[in-house]
């Protein structure tokens, strides 16, 4: 156990800051899309597993429904 380094949430945040500083603004911009695309791939894999007979269109519709539910939880703002 003594090999583990104890880190706080502030330490983790500052590690993320350091990582962001190593990226260009364009890389940071693109990372948001890449993270979203990866999240969608994982979510679609989960939906396919839960509904094995569903077509790709049906799986996509279920994914879109999840985002619609998320929108309902998020108060509308003007971004």
């Amino acid at each position: 156990m003594e090999n583990f380094r104890r880190i706080s949430s502030d330490d983790m945040l500052m590690e993320q800051v350091e990582e962001a500083l190593r990226m260009t603004p364009e890389q940071r911009f693109r990372a948001g899309g890449e993270l979203f695309d990866a999240a969608c791939r994982f979510a679609l894999a989960g939906i396919r597993g839960t509904f094995p007979g569903a077509s790709e269109q049906e799986c996509l519709a279920r994914l879109k429904q999840r985002f619609a539910w998320a929108d309902e939880l998020d108060p509308a703002v003007r971004p």
Binding site: A20, R28, F29, F36, A38, P79
Partner: peptide, 11 residues
């Protein structure tokens, strides 16, 4: 994201 720490964005 462009100015800070990137996070996943759906829109």
């Amino acid at each position: 994201n462009t100015h800070g720490i990137p996070r996943a964005t759906k829109d």
